[in-house]
Design a protein around this nucleic acid. Sequence first.
DNA 1: ATGAAAGCGCTAACAG
DNA 2: CTGTTAGCGCTTTCAT
Lengths: 360, 360
Amino acid sequence: MGAPEKPTIGIKDIARYAGVSTGPVDKILNNRGGVSKATEAKILKAIEELGYQPNIFASRLKSAKEYRIAVLMPYATNDIPYWGQHQHGFDAAMVELRPYGIKLEMLPFSQNDVLSFKDAVSKAILGNFQGILMVPVFHDDTARLLNATARNHVPVVFFDSNISGLGQLSFIGQHSGDSGYTAAEIMGRCVPERSEILIATIKKKDDNHLHFANREAGFRTYFENKNNRLVTYENEVADEQTIAAELLDIVRSTPSLSGIFVTNDIHKLVRLLPTSLLDKRCLIGYDLIDENIDYLKKEHISFLISQQPQMQAYKGVKVLYEYLVLKKKPSAEIFVPIDIITPTNIKYYNRIELRDAVLF
Amino acid sequence: MGAPEKPTIGIKDIARYAGVSTGPVDKILNNRGGVSKATEAKILKAIEELGYQPNIFASRLKSAKEYRIAVLMPYATNDIPYWGQHQHGFDAAMVELRPYGIKLEMLPFSQNDVLSFKDAVSKAILGNFQGILMVPVFHDDTARLLNATARNHVPVVFFDSNISGLGQLSFIGQHSGDSGYTAAEIMGRCVPERSEILIATIKKKDDNHLHFANREAGFRTYFENKNNRLVTYENEVADEQTIAAELLDIVRSTPSLSGIFVTNDIHKLVRLLPTSLLDKRCLIGYDLIDENIDYLKKEHISFLISQQPQMQAYKGVKVLYEYLVLKKKPSAEIFVPIDIITPTNIKYYNRIELRDAVLF
DNA sequence: ATGAAAGCGCTAACAG
DNA sequence: CTGTTAGCGCTTTCAT
């Protein structure tokens, strides 16, 4: 039989293996600086070769250190209730991770207002945070933030939208193109051949239009070799009366209209059209906000696609936790599933409870 | 300003407060016995009055205790590949929880064979495990196991199927009735009014028929006040030739058949029927096993419903971990979502990666 | 049945 | 820049 095996590799082991003491090892492990290049190399080699895994229990027992994470995301408003959904995910993450020293500080901004974003970014830079979780709404100030954090090795995770190439640790969100394609697959099953389908986007000022365009593109791709005619509607003005009239006009002048795909929050379209015009048709839209859910249950909306905002929030915090505490590097892109929601299965998607985190 | 406050109450504090040393305190806290009634009372009082909260980090640091969990579930076979899917979930759970002392020991049994189940149960009883995760296939031996574990306060978690009232800590699985109802909602959107729908169950010997019956019941409930005619098929014999002939007969004699709902693994039905009879129809079945996925991508199957076996496995381990290590009591029933799978969104459901650990 | 004391692996402060 | 060392709160062993 072999020699009695030491169960775990600790920092003493790597210190001995590298021929130094535990002091420098700790500094390397925690990026504290003040170690010569030569010993750094030896230590990294030892870590590598012995397959060192930090013992988070010992670490937290001693330090009781806190990891402060700044969360930059838009305010939820009556117009954009979507941003209110993330809170459950943050809550779930905190229940799980507060004992490990994770703390969140919200730095909300107005989605329509570069200045408020700029302000949040400045606070994030000055706040001396250990991690940043953010929706990168405006490019330039996001770049400014990433620039500042790069110097201190502060990890930044994007969620909801992505801007590539800024050095973020990871992105968490839904694949918009695939979600549009998935919507089309369902629509294709629900509508008769040769019938017509409306693709609608009801824009509000300063929406992030990229999501919507990608969803539409994915949707169109599916129908390329089908023989349905696709009609597009996009509002030019914000005035609801005008939008209602225009939509009504389209629906009335499209006799074989069998389905409507709304690339964004669908409730406004449903509200603006008489239900008699909707009920026999297949309507698919996005997001489990209250008004949408209400229409779904009344069967004016056929299916909703969830972007899993709670999951995105939960995962964002967890990724930063794993990076900061467990020193695990996440994938560059983490996609949440494209969940198809009906009046019945919705009850299993309204809490983070089961996933992860996961599940959550 | 006030006196410098001690940040946390430790076992030394309660020992001092109770006028004893830390030895007996530890014994009380961990039900280890060997403490006189008198000191027990003093210690409990101290715990109460000082509001003691155990420090899990210190606890695990010292003990390096291992929690051995027995997993009782059916073997995966060519006939029942479903049970092979859970492994990813167990793997993901182990990556996350091995550092916390969780260890799994598989005690597989044959789904068709009470004796093999009995054997697994006996091993679970004798194995001196700290937790049990199991599919309660046969009632009597499950009860025997729960009886034995109750005496040692060993927690038992059921997954996939539930038997209520046996004292299990929790159940993790899908709500079969709701999943059938959800399938019906989709079907209802895809088929014309007044068309006919086939509900099929292709049984193998000793399947757990309860799931299938509940799914059918949920499906039927939806159609109660619709005007589609529902036709039922269940095989009496296992012989594929016979089943094929019977199915063919039904499909041919039902001219306006627009959809088929298979309450279990759908691939056998698809394999037995010529694709020309399937392609214009709406087919919905269960489980992301390879052959089903293949048919889904070829569009012979319209939608699959996933039971999230990986998630069930992952969650099962995690629930036991949280109970054993963090002393958190889970909900009595934990339902996994009813995921609707298309050829495109399937890629986001094939790994545990995103959910919980959650994600999963 | 109880008390005393030696660590678990890591951090951080301090001495060299 | 590197080495040494005193704990963090709890578990566990060994005397008493």
